[in-house]
Each structure stands twice: as structure tokens, then as C-alpha cells.
């Protein structure tokens, strides 16, 4: 009985919301066109994915293509952000002179909302994948960078002492001690970054790109297709959840040594 409950645990809250939503929207409290019930959304979504009855009109059967083009933008921008954020973060955390020369500039750019770069991004990169990738990069870069710096700065000095006692060069210290010591922090940054990445790819698609889930969302809004708006939102949520799960999986493999020593490792 317990086991069955455990496997259904995570479905309880979403199910409750769906049922409540269906009831409210069928009760006539709001016009059905403004808040389509989940069944209607699901129907439109189904057609968007499989293209069975053209409910979603021009989008019928194009979901995979839309999801893929969004996902590719996230992957590209996030990948660049992760690699550059980790490398620059280690450099800033380790060398005082890099910190002094680079950090003030970074800290000044950081509070500028990535969305406010949209005009420049369109002028520089045109209407295509590039401005979206640029925005995703901006959104994911700073969390990864900040957390990497934090991870490097809080690395245990005694471990560095122990390693240099064994003849480690500076490069070896960075690779064999500082990087693994900073890894828990780096992963925290990567997880915050993936959320920002999805947020920004959708934003970019609303204004600067003519494909992807964000584009369908905005386009459906113009055509008063709130069922498709909701289906896009749900798609983005699901994909974001899936990519976060992927990073969590990666994290649990890379940080398996924490097993049994942290609160986090108690998670199933």
C-alpha cells in the first residue's frame, strides 16, 4: 500500500489542480474561451503533437519540430554559458589579478536584465536562432559563473596544502583539487541556469524568432487560441522539468561521493 502511495505521491498535486481547473472552467464562472478546460487544452495539444484532426490548425502535427528548435537553442546557449561560466569562474576565484581586472565589469553587466538585450541582439544577429542563443547564454552564464566563483573560493585550503605537499603544480591543483571541490557549487549554478535558459529562449521566440514553443505561444495569443497558449506553457514546463532532471541525474553521478554525508543525498 505504502509503495503504491509512494509511486503516486508526485502526481497528487498536479491531478488536484487539473480536476479543480476542469470544474471551474465548465461551471461557466468565466467564458469558456478565456479559460479552456484541461480536456480542451489536451485535445488541442494532442493535435499539435500528432496532427489527427487539425484542431490546432497550422500547428497541427508540428509539436516535435517546435520543441526541438526551442531545445536546440537552449542546448547551444546553455552549453556555451556552462563552459565559459565554469572556466571564467575558476579563473576569477583562483587568481586575484583576474578577479581585480574582470569582476567589476561582470558585476556591472549582471544586474542588466537579459531581456533588455533583445533590441541589440536583433540588430546584431537578425531574426533567427542567434539572438535567442545569445539571450539564453546571458541568462545561464551569470548563475553558473557566480556559483563557480563561490565554489572555488570556499574550497578547503587544507586540501590544497595537502596536494601541494605531494608536489602538485598550480595547474594540477586546479584540475585535481579546486575543480572537484567546487563541483557541488557548480552544479547548483547549472541548475539555476537551466531555468533561466528556458525562460529566455521562450522570451526570445516571442519577439525575435519565427519558430519554437515561445513563438507558437505568442502566435496563438494573437489568434485567441488560449488552449494552444496553455498547451505551449505546459510543453515548456515539461521540457524544463525534463532537462532539470537530466542535470540532477548528472549531478548525482558526479557527486556520488557525497552519498550519505549530506541532506541532499537522502533524496530518493
Amino acid at each position: 500500500m505504502r509503495a503504491i502511495w509512494k509511486s503516486w505521491e508526485r502526481a497528487v498535486v498536479p491531478l488536484f489542480i487539473l480536476v479543480a481547473w476542469e470544474i471551474v472552467s465548465r461551471s461557466g464562472l468565466l467564458p469558456a474561451a478565456l479559460l479552456p478546460p484541461p480536456t480542451v487544452v489536451l485535445h488541442a495539444w494532442g493535435d499539435w503533437v500528432f496532427g489527427f484532426d487539425e484542431t490546432s490548425q497550422g500547428n497541427s502535427g508540428r509539436w516535435l519540430a517546435d520543441a526541438l528548435s526551442s531545445a536546440m537553442r537552449v542546448a547551444a546557449g546553455y552549453g556555451i554559458a556552462a563552459v565559459s561560466g565554469i572556466l571564467l569562474g575558476i579563473a576569477i576565484g583562483w587568481w586575484r589579478w583576474v578577479e581585480r581586472t574582470v569582476e567589476p565589469t561582470i558585476q556591472m553587466l549582471r544586474p542588466v536584465p537579459p531581456v533588455s538585450w533583445i533590441p541589440l541582439a536583433i540588430i546584431w544577429f537578425g531574426i533567427a536562432d542567434k539572438p535567442a542563443i545569445f539571450l539564453v547564454f546571458l541568462g545561464a552564464f551569470f548563475p553558473v559563473l557566480m556559483n563557480t566563483i563561490h565554489g572555488v573560493k570556499t574550497a578547503d585550503r587544507n586540501l590544497i596544502r595537502a596536494a601541494s605537499m605531494m608536489g602538485a603544480t598550480e595547474q594540477q591543483l586546479l584540475r585535481h583539487v579546486v575543480f572537484p571541490a567546487a563541483l557541488p557549487s557548480i552544479f547548483a549554478g547549472l541548475r539555476i541556469g537551466i531555468g533561466a535558459a528556458w525562460m529566455l529562449t521562450v522570451t526570445a521566440e516571442m519577439v525575435a524568432v519565427k519558430s519554437g514553443l515561445g513563438y507558437v505561444l505568442w502566435d496563438s495569443y494573437y489568434f485567441l487560441r488560449y488552449d494552444l497558449v496553455l498547451a505551449s506553457m505546459a510543453s515548456i514546463g515539461l521540457l524544463g522539468y525534463a532537462t532539470d532532471g537530466l542535470i540532477k541525474l548528472l549531478m548525482s553521478m558526479a557527486l556520488h561521493w557525497q552519498h550519505g554525508s549530506t541532506l541532499q543525498s537522502r533524496e530518493g
Binding site: N158, L159, R161, A162, P180, A181, L255, W257, Q258
Partner: peptide, 9 residues
């Protein structure tokens, strides 16, 4: 060292 200072990973 006073603490073993082992690499926890």
C-alpha cells in the same frame, strides 16, 4: 595533518 585532509570525492 591534524585533520586527515583527504579528497572527499
Amino acid at each position: 595533518f591534524q585533520q586527515a585532509n583527504l579528497m572527499p570525492w
